[in-house]
Nucleic acid binder design. Sequence first.
DNA 1: ATTCTATAGTTAAGCCCTTAACTACCGGCC
DNA 2: GGCCGGTAGTTAAGGGCTTAACTATAGAAT
Lengths: 338, 338
Amino acid sequence: MPTLQDVAKRAGVSTATVSKVLSNTPYFTDETRENVLHAVDALGYIPNLAARALSSGKTHIIAVVFPYVYDAIFADPHVLRILEGIESECREHGYNILLSTPRLSPDGVDEHFRQLILSGYIDGVIALDNVPVASVTEIVRRKHIPAVDIGYRKSGPYVCSDDHLGSLLMMQHVTGLGHSAIGVVGAPEALHLANQDRIAGLREGADAAGLDFGTMPRIDGDFSTGSGAKCAQLLLEQHPELTALICLNDRMAMGAIQQARQLERSVPADLTVVGYDDIPMAAAFDPPLTTIDQQAPELGRIASRMLFNLLDEHSPESVVLPTRLVVRRSSAPPKLSA
Amino acid sequence: MPTLQDVAKRAGVSTATVSKVLSNTPYFTDETRENVLHAVDALGYIPNLAARALSSGKTHIIAVVFPYVYDAIFADPHVLRILEGIESECREHGYNILLSTPRLSPDGVDEHFRQLILSGYIDGVIALDNVPVASVTEIVRRKHIPAVDIGYRKSGPYVCSDDHLGSLLMMQHVTGLGHSAIGVVGAPEALHLANQDRIAGLREGADAAGLDFGTMPRIDGDFSTGSGAKCAQLLLEQHPELTALICLNDRMAMGAIQQARQLERSVPADLTVVGYDDIPMAAAFDPPLTTIDQQAPELGRIASRMLFNLLDEHSPESVVLPTRLVVRRSSAPPKLSA
DNA sequence: ATTCTATAGTTAAGCCCTTAACTACCGGCC
DNA sequence: GGCCGGTAGTTAAGGGCTTAACTATAGAAT
């Protein structure tokens, strides 16, 4: 592999000149510039990133951190769409993505992650920091490494989705269709910080429709498809009068619909089922899912841009991204007999 | 951040001693060792990875490469399970994962990826190298960087799933149930190298049952759920006599089942639909999908171990991982009237 | 003629670690 | 006594890049 020195020798200049030309420093004649670039080309020179990192302190690597909890991450399409957004933005800006999935405990992050952060290998961090048990970005920020949260902890720059609005819209939609016997497939607040907002939004929506959210049957799952089916089963067995199920994510909604079908309740004719997230499969599902679009890729893209700002020493504004109701065919008015 | 020097000073030894103690080089008294370790502890010393990389040539970063083609990668649960396997193995061995999704063209990989590979930042590569248009690992190996393929190119160390066996098992299962009017939801060979093997396996299975694979209706999708629905629609409209649909992945099978439902054909009573991959949702689907288990996480784990071998200068044996038929409830014998 | 500024480029220190080569000491052996 | 091998540690040379500080020249301003 040719080095800066080789290029310098070939171009008949000093290594400093080569380095500066390559980083577009002013005050060089066009001739010198061309000389250098030709030499670079001829030798097929590619900068050694380790050397550059050591010397400049910049690695051009950002860590994308998805704490490893329940099944999540590698099973959650919603997370993946966020990753997709991050990836596309980072690649445009020449940053590389290091994927890190630290284990979280009440003591904080695991040792491996700590070392990674402190090793100077990482220019910045984007973290999905939504598990109440421990914060990922706290330790990162303490070491003065730029970090952006995708989430609800709000202890530093963050992007998040307007979950309160989302679940409000959802409840309004369901009550607006005429439902009043509504069940909720939720998730424990210990699993995800957004849950509080989502529950609050549902409550507000219920209030607005003159319903008491507190008395609505609710069973918590763990976001997996299977748990959605199980919760729906319990809910429908204990409360056969329910005409609608609001699920806190799409996967549980899909599970609920499959379960409903087994209980011979067709969706949406006999039962309205709605989800949350608008994962890619939601539109292709049968019936297509009424859900809340969180603009997942946009979350990732915004987080990335905020991080780039931070790396440029600007301080970005945190943003709360609006959510949008997507009405498809899994929701309908209740049967008149109900 | 404290450096090696700081530690050395504090422990009253040379930097070489510290470095060697930390890498477990023999010939130090227990006393010296403890001295050093105490100093490390007291100062909270964490090695600077860039410096280590520059000096030793090892970064402890491996690139996990998922070429960006059709929708894939960020939408494909199967790919994610592979990633899960890689992640768990790498974290155990102290390697970090850099996620790279180069754009492929007939000219090869994109420039950004080329630079990454040549920058010396990467110790090794694990690539999902299954798109016929261009090889990812070719350029990597040309630069003498250890690389393992998860795939069917077989131009270097690789792991792959026994697709021929898998699709043979599937066809045997379907014909064994008594089906003979079988449709195939395939995928163009240009999309994925495994397709040839899968088609060959199906053909062999058909032959064995005395059926002519060549005359079975076949329409190709692109692995997405939506395309599965579309293919199923065309297939069932043009060939209402079909009693079974073999789909080349689970997502298309799910789409096909949803479509069948809309055409008022219940699965499996009126129509058998089988998939391939055994993604997590396959078991939770309604009806649970009969499919082929590819042991995706194991693919990732094996690939990682092979790469570690390569990094240790051993040459690993390539492996073809057996596939397994998973019979669930989306397949059943055809109606007697049929 | 002198000083100043802008332009164009070089020198060399420094980033932090690894490791080959070397020193030093001690006990054992012929 | 001289030599050897094993043990315990040090010295110092890089590895490839960035960048502060410096030199040098030409033209403009005083």
